[in-house]
Write a protein that binds this DNA or RNA. Structure first.
Lengths: 205, 205
DNA sequence: AGGTATACGTACCGATCGGTAACATTGTCA
DNA sequence: TGACAATGTTACCGATCGGTACGTATACCT
């Protein structure tokens, strides 16, 4: 007897290699659960239950829970740089305005109810052991962030570009953490303004 | 860097109720394990094993694992403010120097091998749900930190004291996180310098 | 239609999770 | 010596953990 299935939501065009539908549902649910409540806090049983699939389906698409977590972070990484590039593209040739746009957006996100910080940062805290699949993705994301911020500090003409780039990174990470610690009205809402003050103080005179 | 176990720390005089020795051993071991590897990652079995005690002993001194975690954080909180007050006491009447001393110390700690960030911050990331015993202690610690930093920003004569205080908090939290993410040579080593730049840019002219 | 590869479900595994019951042993101080 | 509190011992609980063996349904391609 045909139970009422969920709404068909095939995004892929007809010609691409048809990926298992279950894998996408699983990853979508895992993304949401891992981000909101933490990776260690979520068991695979809850994921498959909420996704409307069964456990063997999960393990056919993902070798392990750790690798599923890494997949979640890889998708997070992709969306992260999309947001970053949007801020960059909005102000061509003006790195200071690019930073300001990116941080203003972060500041706004941190003021949303139930804000849970950066999935990358959180994963690194949850998995301190080097070499863990989730941590590897997280570390790569952060190193790339540092590289970009330092490059933008150079482009801004800072006296000490590496220090300014690192200072911006500290402010950003601080915003991610304090956003989920303080909620509305917390320190994270000042990240763009503080960054601008720091930039101003770091430019060549 | 946590436990300094040599120092005898009997607070009670001879008449007070003699505290169980097992409780101290358990808390010491839990402190070390929770801090280094995370609270969720450590089971009570490993704690009692490393402490050389048995599980019933743990549950005679602590109502639950969550409360043991909260006890760990309460001790962390105590030691945290001791370090803070040391930096303050070293520069009486000079809040800017106090901040600099505190952040220089943080910057140094972040460059130690196996640095694991702030136990408070990590606990808040591990337990996002409001009302969790561990999170309650963590949030109280962070609110107190914000209060002190803002008060010091006032004492420094900042144009916008709340913004500067919050900016310093962002830098500090960023140092805690990036310290454990990047290890040696990471952005956290610049926290004192960046804070000083931010302070300079925030003072009344 | 028929075969075949692929996706999926049922049922189960051993290990570990946090936590407890009941009782034996110890150390301390009056 | 007696009494009492603290600790140890052993065995156990139900729940959940991540992961899998194996049979069944479905889609596609001649």
């Amino acid at each position: 007897m045909p139970t009422d299935k969920n709404i068909e939501l095939t995004i892929n065009d007809g010609h691409a290699s048809a990926p298992p539908k279950a894998a996408k549902k699983i990853l979508d649910v895992a993304y949401d659960l891992f981000y909101r409540r933490g990776i260690r806090a979520i068991g695979v049983d809850e994921i498959v239950k909420r996704a409307g699939v069964t456990k063997p389906s999960l393990y056919r698409s993902f070798p392990s829970k750790d690798e599923l977590a890494a997949s979640y972070l890889r998708q997070y990484d992709q969306e992260y740089w999309e947001r970053f590039d949007e801020a960059v593209a909005a102000h061509p040739g003006d790195p200071r305005a690019q930073i300001k746009a990116f941080l203003t957006r972060i500041g706004k996100r941190t003021q949303m109810a139930e804000y849970r910080g950066c999935g990358m940062t959180n994963a690194a805290v949850e998995y301190p052991e080097h070499g863990h699949p989730a941590r590897v993705v997280s570390e790569a994301n952060k190193h790339e962030l540092r590289r970009r911020l330092r490059a933008m500090a150079v482009a801004m003409g800072a006296q000490d570009a590496d220090t300014l780039g690192d200072g911006l990174l500290l402010l950003i990470e601080g915003a991610y953490i304090s956003g989920q610690l303080f909620g509305l009205g917390g320190p994270a809402q000042t990240v763009a303004r503080n960054a601008d003050l720091l930039i101003e103080a770091s430019l060549k005179k």
